[in-house]
Write a protein that binds this DNA or RNA. Structure first.
Lengths: 249, 249
DNA sequence: CTGAGTAATTGACTTAGCTCAAAGAAAGGG
DNA sequence: CCCTTTCTTTGAGCTAAGTCAATTACTCAG
């Protein structure tokens, strides 16, 4: 709880807890409890899993793993923010996902064969992750098969989310991709308008949406001038989502 | 076996078995055995699952389900070919996946909540699918928890595949997306060149890759004139994959 | 085999979005 | 708090890819 608040408010207003107070285990435990993969675990199993994992502090832009590296761990984000990206021969960097506190990533490696990371992972700001050995989690599932149900539900949800991401990317115009991306960020139930926080710096959102930062900037400026969004740093206020959807056809 | 051959050769040369010979259960069983979701099932469980499912014949361009319809079944393709697509407000049709005999689709619905199909599904040619009630499979997993391991592996693999699809779509140029798509179709181990069959008509591959059919045609013509691919209907021969990758940067 | 309907190609033109360049604004480290 | 670095925005020009239109080639049903 307190944990999430420190992370979330890092860029808005001073936090109530002491700065850099080491986040204790109880915080992480509570945060892991919320995650579908761990919510059904007994306290003992969860504590045990945590004790067999390593806690890692990452600095701004610090690399966590490289594409194609053998994958012996998956990760849970305690605080901060990370991004997943790929690099191709020409060194072009394409952002594929951003990870917030409370999320797991590379958890697909539990079942991958061969177990190699499919992309790079780096911290976008100073972050803390829990590094869970794949083997430990596998053993846990073997010992307690009842936990697999939760894992199945998690993987199914992830597959649906990726399918949806793919759907956005089959939209041809850069403008329409951006609009759909924004609509997806809106919390459900905000049909009458709402605020959205970009999970990545604008230039990386652009990369995620297969467009140039300049194009992103111009499209946003255009939406702004048409009164469709109000922009404040990385916070966007969308007053009329329905109109935005309509414009994107 | 014979089953797959009839489907595969439908458009190439006359088949050896009698035309439209009703494909018997044993064929479907053998074909399902190959699939990760069913390979670990006992004969009895698999037969039972099949008996509780309905076999459906679909004609050319026949719709199987609509986006947002309540999902009570998932599907196994016995013969033919299907595609998954979405339709937006303006009626633009965006192809997201093609499904071959031996594949499952909408199987994510087993864990979805709410269980609604995320896209349309239609037959690309006359096809046969097995319609498996979600409830029946859920009950099976509940009765035999040991089957969940296979399901987990399947979902993890699917998530990786979707991640990879997404990766292709973050490539900006239409030419490079097409090249990567072709490389992915190449059977692994064909680094020295090989033949690829487009799983969809060219205009739908174009839609899948977020480009116009005209653009697809021009890019392919260009690759052809540079001696990078030889084109024969929907069969492409790629002589030097390494050079193709290099060109795509 | 024939004809209708769909898919694929090609050309001419237009435009969205990329590139390069340069200035201005934020963010993070010391 | 200041300084450096990284983001972001804006402009100008260019190119890839979209649109429209017309032709040709396939596919399938009768």
């Amino acid at each position: 709880m307190a944990l999430l608040q420190t992370a979330e408010t890092r860029y808005s207003k001073p936090v109530l807890v002491a700065v850099n107070k080491p986040l204790d285990e109880d915080d992480s435990l509570a945060s892991m409890r919320q995650h579908a993969l761990f919510s059904s675990l007994t306290d003992d199993d969860l504590t045990d899993l945590m004790h067999q994992s390593r806690r890692l502090r990452l600095g701004h832009h610090q690399l966590l793993y490289r594409q194609d590296m053998p994958a012996h761990h998956f990760f849970f984000v305690v605080s901060g923010r990370l991004r997943l990206y790929r690099l191709d021969a020409s060194g072009i960097d394409r952002t594929l996902d951003s990870i917030a506190p409370g999320d797991c990533f590379a958890e697909v490696m539990i079942y991958a064969d061969p177990a190699r990371y499919a992309c790079y992972a780096e911290a976008l700001k100073s972050s803390e992750v829990l590094m869970i050995p794949v083997k430990v989690y596998q053993d846990l599932l073997e010992r307690k098969p009842e936990y697999t149900q939760a894992a199945l539900r998690h993987y199914a949800r992830r597959a649906v989310a990726r399918f949806h991401d793919l759907e956005i990317m089959t939209v041809q115009s850069a403008r329409d991709r951006l609009i759909r991306y924004l609509i997806d960020l809106l919390p459900s139930g905000a049909e009458q308008g709402g605020e959205v926080e970009l999970p990545l710096p604008k230039c990386l959102v652009a990369s995620r949406l297969a467009m140039q930062p300049e194009t992103f900037s111009r499209i946003l400026a255009d939406l702004k001038s048409n009164g469709l969004v109000r922009v404040n740093r990385s916070r966007l206020f969308i007053s009329d989502p329905a109109r935005l959807i309509q414009i994107s056809q």
